[in-house]
């Protein structure tokens, strides 16, 4: 069965830690880091990278265009 695997890359410098991508992800992939960026925001990162499907929902709600999304189909 084919399966979608995805990955996101967050631009840490421009992320404002708003949490909207965390809320928008249907698979609980994202969380905010304990560390902060240069502006003092807890930035988003992939907490559960293996669950990402590459649906891009997170990127659709990000107000600061910090998220890049990749997706590939794996046949098993």
């Amino acid at each position: 069965m084919a399966k979608n695997r995805g990955a996101i890359e967050v631009d840490i410098a421009t992320c404002k830690g708003c949490y909207l991508c965390v809320e928008a992800c249907p698979f609980d992939v994202i969380d905010l880091a304990d560390e902060v960026n240069a502006k003092g925001y807890n930035y988003a990162y992939m907490k559960n990278p293996e669950k990402c499907t590459g649906c891009a929902n997170c990127a659709m709600v990000c107000p600061d265009s910090c998220i890049t999304v990749y997706k590939m189909t794996i046949k098993s």
Partner: peptide
Amino acid sequence: EIKKAENLVYKKSSVLTDKVMHYCPGC
């Protein structure tokens, strides 16, 4: 393996500049 150019499905629009928006978080 996933984060490769051929797997790219979404990236920041080229019509947006590199300026960081001044809006509050989540606006």
